[in-house]
């Protein structure tokens, strides 16, 4: 961390986590914060931004993104997650392709051109199918810490087929499977597969160009990565820090604003 004041800040107020990235004039990351999103999001955004800018708002450009983007009152501009993710991933990977982002409340697939522009995108419909929430609900039911789900899924010797993609339906299906004595790890593996298939279906509907890239908190799960590669028929590229891609994109946009682009 440096004492230098940033010139550009990106803040991603997601449904589960809030991510902040601060950049200097050269685009170097000065500071990075990840914390749980507070129910009092507006206050939280104010506190984070006050801290990171030292209150000197006139010197800093700020781009807010994520569900709570309009609650960051001090931001210069609010931009959707779609544009920010595209910007962030293009910067990180240096090429276009198809980005799959699996977030807490929603998942999205974004087709990015060779120059980094958004060509097309889709998002899951309002139910939790195909999102992190789906795994969370299921993890709760199975009493497995969510962080361990990926490992458990990968190490399971066998897999139970989960037909329901709806989180609510899946929960009752899990109860049924447990009642039949199915081992928990087999069910976990089936759940991860079910989530991936749903997301892959979303991707297919866009006639997605290669390569595939993955971001979002769920990307940290090794099982999701492995199953996704299977479902898409090829490896999936992962940025170093998949969770902060949206915030990074927002910060890069802020830098563009700062430079008058």
């Amino acid at each position: 961390m440096s004492n230098k004041l940033p010139v550009a800040v990106g803040i991603d107020l997601g449904s589960a986590f809030t991510k902040v990235i601060a950049l200097d004039e050269e685009g170097k990351v000065l500071q990075k914060i990840i914390e749980d999103t507070d129910p009092y999001t507006e206050k939280q955004a104010g506190r984070l931004l006050d801290g990171i800018t030292g209150g000197e708002y006139h010197r800093v450009s700020i781009v807010a993104t994520g569900y709570g983007r309009k609650l960051a009152k001090r931001s210069t501009r609010a931009v959707t997650e779609i544009s920010c993710h595209a910007k962030g991933i293009f910067h990180e990977m240096g090429h276009g392709g198809t980005l799959i982002d699996i977030g807490g409340q929603d998942s999205k697939v974004i087709v990015i051109s060779d120059t980094g522009a958004v060509l097309n995108f889709t998002m899951n419909d309002k139910c939790a199918a195909g999102t992190g929430r789906f795994l969370e609900v299921s993890a709760n039911r199975l009493k497995i810490p969510i962080e361990l789900m990926g490992k458990t899924a990968l190490e399971a010797a066998s897999e139970v087929k989960i037909t329901s993609t709806c989180a609510v339906f899946a929960e009752s299906e899990i109860v049924g499977l447990l009642a039949k004595g199915k081992p928990v790890d087999h069910i976990v593996r089936g759940l991860a597969r079910s989530l991936v298939l749903r997301v892959a279906a979303m991707a297919h509907s866009l006639h997605p160009p290669k390569p595939f890239m993955l971001s979002g908190g769920v990307a940290r799960s090794p099982a999701i990565r492995a199953f996704l590669a299977e479902a898409l028929g090829q490896a999936v590229e992962l940025p170093e820090e998949p969770q902060i891609i949206g915030a990074l994109g927002a910060a890069l946009m802020a830098l563009d604003i700062h430079k008058g682009k």
């Binding site: 037909t163 329901s164 993609t165 339906f169 009752s172 299906e173 049924g176 009642a179």
Partner: peptide, 9 residues
């Protein structure tokens, strides 16, 4: 569409 049916229920 079997994905709609919850057999257990």
């Amino acid at each position: 569409d079997s994905r709609v049916l919850s057999w257990e229920q």
